[in-house]
Design a binder for these strands. Structure first.
Lengths: 225, 225
DNA sequence: TAGATTGTTAATCGATTAACAATC
DNA sequence: TAGATTGTTAATCGATTAACAATC
């Protein structure tokens, strides 16, 4: 049975995919079991089985899944095999890094250009992708029917940029600014929130100190005195 | 009562914090209710109340929370008021962007240096933070008792770098490489996984197409024919 | 055949939400 | 006082995990 897909499942699929891709010929088999994947990624095996069952029916009892088939099935489900075009707004360090990063193609993402309001930023990057004036954003999005907008501006202009992207017909927003964006119902906002990650890291370290796991330079081998 | 804090709550706290900080004097009051925060961030008000109750007891019936007090309480809980030092491994575009980004200080993160195995990358960045040879990593981490390691290397050397960081006494890892890292039990790995985000974005767009919300350039105003 | 592995049903667990009592 | 708002207990919801039947 094909289960409806939950957001949690959706977020684990890229994990399975990247694991499957690391398996070279030295793995020694064309097939792999859900249990093997679960052990490698430290997940529950039933969870992996359910996740895989939700996107594939190529699993065979006693045999498992054919690795290549499974890779294709996951990539296809995730839409990595048809390219989505995107634009970036905010050509700061992060924006430029994303613009020039070659690796997104394999996830089906093609960033066409960045936009910035600072005239000094305009021009071509080394990888021949343009940084254009923000005034040209809407025209380009409509003309090329671009569906993904990436926001890498400072927090204070993020909402304004977001509104402009929505107006330009964008359907999904990848937001790197540490703010909550207000959008119409059928537009997806995916937050890549560094502040959130840092909160988790920082809290973990604080907890360690509180619980006495570490004391100010004390070596761990003598901490139990 | 102080509830134990869940990871979900922990991840919403930075959201509240950034919202509270956007409230200028034009907000018109020193106090704010959980309901107001919930509405602004499109969250359930009971959820916000519970989250806040888990880190604060300064809420007063009929009045709400004092904004400044709440900001300080959240920042303090998240550990933003005591600086954690970090190092980056991998001085590519992303690594360098993170190294030179000035904004992490306000989250209590101070990145001291980046490390790379490519001699051509070594030297000083514009903001006078050094890029050092990876051979010096362990020594520096131990000497300065550094607790956070940031991995921005290609996927294929991420695990090796991770092992080196663990060996160097790091306690938490912020991983930007799209791989699952194996670490000892008490080390935290926080994945900043772009592939995961892209999966969510890509799937959203695919769903839209499937459900017929959009048809190949058809204008949305005539889609219901 | 026997055993490994899949897929599914049922139980558990935890987070969210609803209802409500307490209180400034 | 009355009403707004907090904090808490109970109900709901959804995801994870356990148990097990099906099968190559």
């Amino acid at each position: 049975m094909i289960y409806p897909i939950s957001k949690q499942t959706l977020q684990r699929l890229p994990l399975y995919l990247s694991y499957l891709k690391t398996l070279g010929f030295e793995y020694g088999s064309e097939n792999i079991s859900a249990t093997t994947i679960a052990n490698a990624l430290r997940l529950n095996q039933v969870q992996v089985r359910k996740d895989l069952a939700s996107i594939s029916s190529s699993g065979k009892p006693k045999i498992g899944y054919n690795i290549q088939t499974l890779i294709v099935e996951i990539e296809s489900f995730l839409g990595y095999d048809n390219i989505n075009e995107a634009v970036i707004v905010g050509a700061g360090r992060l924006g430029t890094a994303l613009l020039t990063f070659q690796g997104f193609k394999e996830y089906g993402l093609d960033i066409l250009a960045a936009f910035d309001s600072n005239p000094e930023k305009l021009g071509m990057t080394a990888c021949s992708k343009p940084i254009l004036p923000v005034e040209e954003l809407k025209e380009m999005c409509l003309k090329f029917n671009i569906r993904i907008g990436i926001i890498t501006t400072p927090a204070k202009c993020a909402q304004q940029v977001c509104d402009l992207l929505v107006e330009s017909g964008i359907q999904a927003i990848w937001n790197f600014a540490p703010v909550h964006l207000i959008v119409p119902p059928n537009i997806l906002v995916q937050n890549e929130n560094m502040a959130t990650s840092l909160a988790v890291l920082s809290n973990h370290l604080t907890e360690r100190i509180k619980s006495g796991e570490e004391k100010n330079g004390t070596r761990s081998d003598i901490r139990e005195k």
